[in-house]
């Protein structure tokens, strides 16, 4: 049995769905954040697998861009969460429910 890049794309699709599910179902801001990272890494896997399949370098280069952007997102996201945590001492998203209607 030969493992082709298509297998990796299917694995990536599964990871992406797991990440999206985690974001929508979990209630802890940090876990939701980790789910987003999982989604981004699923995208990276798709890029690499597609680049391998196509014999094209652009997909592999894209991965570096995505990693850098993800790192920048982590910095800002954690800073926002720290600002909230200082006020509430809780990372649960359910308590952030002042704005509604």
């Amino acid at each position: 049995m030969i493992v082709t890049p298509v297998w990796y794309m299917m694995l990536a699709a599964a990871l992406f769905v797991i990440g999206a599910g985690g974001l929508l179902l979990r209630r802890n801001a940090l876990i939701m954040f980790m789910s987003i990272e999982l989604m981004l890494n699923a995208v990276n896997l798709t890029f690499v697998a597609a680049a391998r399949q196509l014999g094209d370098i652009n997909g592999q280069v894209s991965v570096f861009f995505v990693m850098v952007v993800a790192a920048a997102e982590v910095v800002v996201g954690l800073a926002i969460m720290v600002a909230v945590f200082r006020r509430r001492a809780s990372a649960s998203i359910d308590e952030l429910a002042e704005l509604r209607g």
């Binding site: 801001a29 800002v76 969460m81 909230v84 998203i93 704005l99």
Partner: peptide, 8 residues
């Protein structure tokens, strides 16, 4: 709250 919601 707006920042967290916007971010996520």
């Amino acid at each position: 709250e707006a920042a967290v919601k916007y971010f996520l």
